[in-house]
Amino acid sequence: MKPKKLSFLEILDSYSAEESSLIPLLQDAQDEDGYISPEKVEGIAQHLKITESQVYGVASFYSQFRFTPPGRHSISVCLGTACHVSGGETLLNTFERDLEISPGECTPDGRFDLNRVACLGCCALAPVVKIDDDIYSKVNVIKLNDIIGLYE
């Protein structure tokens, strides 16, 4: 059984009010529902006694943090070097076209969000696509259609 997810307030309370808590705090806050809302930025700023712009400044520096709600399923297309030379870009373009969204966006029905990722470290099996926690290797355009169908 998975441990119950903590609420945002419980997460805040689990961190001491020091600057070095900021990034882990943002990570946990994002884990809760997949993104950092303006309310969370405010809450974190108050808890750590720093300004909201400081919180946002740090959060926006790192590619991990998103500021809009994610889809029910997250698609990450690996664009590491090995994936690039094996056609990762073609896969990303196909997703963009089929889902009619750009990287960083979410489909209007909330089914998928699309992301580009620098490297998932499965380079020997390039090109690689990750949907939620599942990694698909040696993907091509034909496989892509079948894979998307697995997620509702």
Binding site: L79, G80, T81, A82, C83, H84, A118, C119, G121, C122, C123, A124
Partner: peptide, 12 residues
């Protein structure tokens, strides 16, 4: 923080 795309020595 193995950031180089195309490298996975540390992960492995």
């Amino acid at each position: 923080d193995e950031g180089d795309p195309g490298a996975f020595m540390n992960r492995l």
